[in-house]
Amino acid sequence: MDLSARIDWDAMLAVAMPLGAAALLGLAVHLLLMRIARRVRAADSRRGRILRVIALPLAFAVPLLMLALALRATPLPPQALDWSQHAIRIALFACVTWLLVRVVSGIERAILRQYPIDVADNVHARRIHTQTRVLGRVVMGAIVLLGVATALMTFPAVRQVGATLLASAGIIGIAAGIAAKPVFSNLIAGLQIALAQPIRLDDVVIVEGEWGRIEEITASYVVVRIWDERRLVVPLTWFIEHPFQNWTRSTADMLGTAVLWLDYRTPMAAVRDELQRICSDDPRWDGKVCIAQVTDTSESTMQVRLLVSARNSGDAFDLRCAVREGLIAFLAREHPEALPRTRATLTRSGGDDGPSHAPAAETVRSPHAEDGELPGD
């Protein structure tokens, strides 16, 4: 029998024509959208940013949608048609999930763009950044979870397993809850941090005895950049369950303290004048606080606290170092007697030192000593 006689050309044409037309049209749309995405990649206008967000997912979703419509016009066997439409449906779910995640990310970037944090007093901007980033990651995670769950529910076996789990939600539900406790704990902690904001991005904190800045807040952990460029990764729940120091909770302004131990002969008026001069000449001083006070004394020295203010923690640290160095140099140059020193009084032994006031040996007794002669008498 001739091979061409066994091929049903009419059936092949009935399948190939709609699929081919859908493929060509979808390819044209795909290339057009990809070209648009490349052209607006560097655009800074609002329209360009919107097109950049939606163009790439639509470049894959529109051809798939056209292919799904074309499959309905083909005389494929029911089983092959069901499998093909199921695969396209899952791919469309993935494209929609991708599009929604990009939309949330675009909205997040648009909000952050309106509130720059590279300014002197950025407390409000850091509050907006923290809320936007944490809530954005929570929403994106929920979208991905919903997309995966929706795709899985299109399989009959998965739907049956889900119905079985719902029907027997006793021990299995408890076990699943225990297993998912860290995930839900971090999710709730993330929402608490986003709303209550015990920490914000770029906050100066002391965590586990380490001084650093909040560099990143994710859906499960916080990255603290330590002053020596190390990174401390802390779970979100730690900031809810443990006390910690936040130096920039209400304002970015900081007070810096420098302590000097000086001699009692230190001229405090000269110290205050020199401190005021150092602060006035330093651009890191914000013009608010510049104080020198004697806060403590010991048997040989007195403690002088120098309190200065700056616009942020970094300037405060550098300013107090400059103040400490400047005052030490000033005292060593102008008032060397103000630097701490150890005193000793030397006396000569013998009769030249004057009469001795020590009591006679025979009259010295310890309290409650027994009556009788002293030892050695």
Results as ranks from 00 to 15, higher is better:
345 T>P: 01
320 R>V: 10
178 I>A: 09
147 G>F: 02
172 I>K: 03
271 V>C: 01
150 T>V: 11
120 A>K: 14
296 D>A: 15
229 E>T: 12
17 M>N: 14
49 R>L: 13
223 V>F: 01
362 E>A: 10
244 F>W: 03
84 S>C: 04
363 T>C: 05
15 V>Q: 07
85 Q>F: 00
297 T>Y: 10
286 D>N: 15
253 D>M: 14
322 A>G: 11
35 R>A: 14
143 I>N: 02
359 P>C: 04
350 G>K: 01
85 Q>S: 04
188 I>S: 12
210 E>V: 14
354 G>I: 02
81 L>W: 00
27 L>G: 14
121 D>W: 13
61 A>E: 03
111 I>D: 01
150 T>W: 10
314 G>M: 09
261 W>H: 09
366 S>V: 11
148 V>P: 03
160 Q>K: 09
223 V>S: 14
274 E>L: 06
86 H>W: 11
221 Y>V: 15
155 F>K: 10
248 T>W: 03
71 L>N: 08
49 R>C: 07
282 D>L: 01
5 A>L: 07
365 R>E: 03
289 V>E: 09
97 T>Y: 02
86 H>S: 12
85 Q>K: 09
82 D>E: 11
133 R>V: 13
1 M>Q: 10
158 V>D: 06
40 V>C: 12
294 V>Y: 03
223 V>K: 08
21 A>I: 10
134 V>Y: 01
96 V>K: 00
97 T>F: 00
235 P>A: 06
321 C>K: 15
57 P>F: 02
276 Q>A: 15
116 P>R: 07
212 G>Q: 00
152 L>F: 10
233 V>C: 05
83 W>Y: 08
